[in-house]
Write a protein that binds this DNA or RNA. Sequence first.
DNA 1: CATCATAATGACAACGCTGTCATTTTACTC
DNA 2: GAGTAAAATGACAGCGTTGTCATTATGATG
Lengths: 340, 340
Amino acid sequence: MSATIKSVAEYAGVSIKTVSRVINNEGTVKPDTLAKVQQAIDALDYRPNKAARDLAGRDNYVLGYVYDNPNAYYILAMQNGILKECRANGYELLIHPCDATNPDIINELVNMVNSARLAGLILSPPLSEMPDVLQAMDDKGIQYVRVLSGDKAPDDKPCVLVDDYQAARQITGHLLDQGHQRIAFIAGEKQHHSTTERQRGFYQALADHGIQADPKLVIDGTYSFGTGVQSIQQLLALPEPPTALFACNDEIAAGALFGARMQGVDVPEALAIAGFENSPFSTQTFPPLTTASQPTAQIAQRATSSLIRSLQARKRKAENHTIPADIFVPELIVRESTSR
Amino acid sequence: MSATIKSVAEYAGVSIKTVSRVINNEGTVKPDTLAKVQQAIDALDYRPNKAARDLAGRDNYVLGYVYDNPNAYYILAMQNGILKECRANGYELLIHPCDATNPDIINELVNMVNSARLAGLILSPPLSEMPDVLQAMDDKGIQYVRVLSGDKAPDDKPCVLVDDYQAARQITGHLLDQGHQRIAFIAGEKQHHSTTERQRGFYQALADHGIQADPKLVIDGTYSFGTGVQSIQQLLALPEPPTALFACNDEIAAGALFGARMQGVDVPEALAIAGFENSPFSTQTFPPLTTASQPTAQIAQRATSSLIRSLQARKRKAENHTIPADIFVPELIVRESTSR
DNA sequence: CATCATAATGACAACGCTGTCATTTTACTC
DNA sequence: GAGTAAAATGACAGCGTTGTCATTATGATG
């Protein structure tokens, strides 16, 4: 049916092992031999048989995506990005939903990696932010790449950073630019780095403009619609209510918008509201929400590519092949919820 | 490292081929031999090596899930159900997002199935409702299972049915039981069978109660928040506005709820609203929405199981092995948006 | 130009399973 | 209980690749 390594070898007039070397980028093939083989591969439209590689080789060409996150849109975008990169590199993807609060999560992951003989893992928050999970992976020698909230890599293991701090600073800056002085902040779960980073950006932006944050305007909550509804009631009841709100994500913002409207407060006239994430929620409110958008699929793709490169480097025993961490800054999207 | 077929065979005192027969359910193994082998498998915690199976066998143990649907929650729930069943049967899952409006979609699918040597495909709406796609799969001899809206199987190929008709009848019945006489209906895209089935159920419920539907209360739209907002304005502007609304999904219902509130119409006091799908939207509104819930993950699991059984049957040349279609009726969930 | 180190290539077994076909066991018949 | 068909089991090759190790080509050195 389709071409095999043998047919390519015959076509190119070399041994199958040489073809194997070419397709694995082993780098010990003479340039003209390599060209011949490449040409044969192209001519025959040869694609290595994954099953045979997995069986013969030490490693499996399978990556794992482990996630636990209530946000379906995020997961699906991540997944699409990962899939794209996997496909481009002949890897396959094993998808493993799990529960990060499960006390046995570490065993679960280690077992999964072993039994499916995974080459590496892609971890997104909150898994990527759990030190004991990462420690266990390191101990077991399991390769992984993390997608993390932050503006600098915490260590030299592969990771891709999402600079929530910078983006939050921009959003807050946008509100300040509109002339707002009393800006409220509603936080999500404090365990998520994204929350603390966004809050840090919020404070920094205020400081940049020489404004001292009013602690009464900062409310802790969860990433939920309900938090938005409750918090905005509390905020609007203050003697000096805020004129603008930066909610830690769109869901909170949507809740706050709803709550404000219910109390007869016009948005954006009496209260400007900004969210974060650019989730479908953000366009399904009236008015649509100002927010920050991260290119999740692209982030996932880059993370996967990092992992694959680091896997290949390790295979060739190239030590110290640290890949610099990519940083993505979510982009401000201004919509009507913050217009003057 | 981990157990192989050889170690299981030695442990059980049989040949590797017999073990192979057991793990493939070939059914030609004596009961007591089978028991011995099963015990060995359990004792050694043996899991067949997929790469070896794929390489040695004619078929690949890989199923494909092809989807095109904007609803991330639905996709993810489907995916989880499929994954669960795949894992239980030693299959792997290849996930393939695609665009159903792409004119070249058929080629894309056929190529994918061939190049990844997929054993079978799981199709959810809208793909599962496109006759030319199904025709092409039949022509190419590609096995598939469909998840479909309907109350009876359109043919004898494997499918799992979601009885939107019955559920819509129940929802409408619930509104009628509350004493409503003028009930509006907002439809989604007419290409989706789910829309027409739900509409059919709506009409039937009215007929059951001897009520003739008022065409002015039935509005065509899309599965979107915006449709809900616009349609409700139109409905409330009628000389005789409805006292209840059945929206084709939760997103439309949420839009309608929003629109009604904006016009000062109280829900549920002045207008009862019901949605469909039990999406996260339905609990993130005030008041939360009455809706119908389908066990998507379970549906997906059943569909996958059907596909696998039909695959194994075909392998054993057992013709006429038609598996009766499962039917799931989404369950009515009553929340405050329709309370008296 | 002989010598040696090193780079480039090749021969071949092995990975864990399934398909084919041969062999053994079982069940049934007269 | 011999004979036969059918059911159950086994022996062995082969799937397409990589790892190991052997072999050959290349280049550097004195």
